[in-house]
Amino acid sequence: MVRKLLAVCLIWLVFGANLVLAAENVVIKGSTTVLPIAQAALEVYMKAHPGVNISLSAGGSGDGIKALIDKSTDIANSSREIKDKEITLARAHGVEPVAHTVAIDAIVPIVHPKSKVNGLTIDQLSQIYQGKITNWKEVGGDNLTIVVVSRDSSSGTFESWGHLVLNNARVTPKAQLQASSGAVVQAVSKNRYAIGYIGLGYLNTSVKGLTVNGITASAKTALSKEYPVSRPLYMYTNGQPTGEVANFIKFVLSPAGQKLVATEGFVPVAGEAKENPLNKGKKR
């Protein structure tokens, strides 16, 4: 699969390079979680800089870092920190990976506003999503069956949730599937049996966000890494970026770029854009 993907990228590169011979090319590869941010940013960026051609593909964080090491990409998107092994390998290839934190991915478990439950531990969440805890009374709620609402298995939120909460154990097959974060909010807001999870940016007053291990999810706790279901999202470059690559990353970190980050449901890492949809969540 990886080889096929690489082949597709290669064809796309050759093809793309022919089309815009004179223009600047930036190649971005890596994490599917970071994909929506990169996608939104490059659309705006390319509109503002007509000469620049940015190609983007997502095959996972590992693929992105691999591509950075063999110099087939300018930017490697990653939803995890680069491993020591990868750094060693990169240095052997004359590549010096530099991390740029572009956003924080914080995911909040949500329940119906009338639920008695206010918080759960990571372990309880994991048990619920694996189908091992099936009644709310086991975690301090009413005597109601738990209806587990999950995202479709290809979404980045699903992947992050699986990684941070379930430790990659399988979600129960009885979990309901919703195709978007908006649909999860809709389903949970109408169902006092349900539990769901969404990116912090999607939290609103129609549902109740739960604390995890006693910590309320907010931009602040996510940034300070107190909130456990959060992780920074990175863009890795080879050395300090120059030229268009540097401009692009500067754009992602600018207030305009960080606003896009918030629109996509992530927590911005820098500057004024922090407000946006997050305030809604604090009012609840």
Partner: peptide, 23 residues
């Protein structure tokens, strides 16, 4: 009980299944 009929699975998952993968 909830179920997931075949067309729903295709519609929900196709958007982000990596091209050429087993999925």
């Amino acid at each position: 009980d909830s179920v997931r009929p075949m067309p729903a699975s295709i519609a929900a998952e196709m958007g982000e299944a990596p091209f050429g993968s087993g999925h």
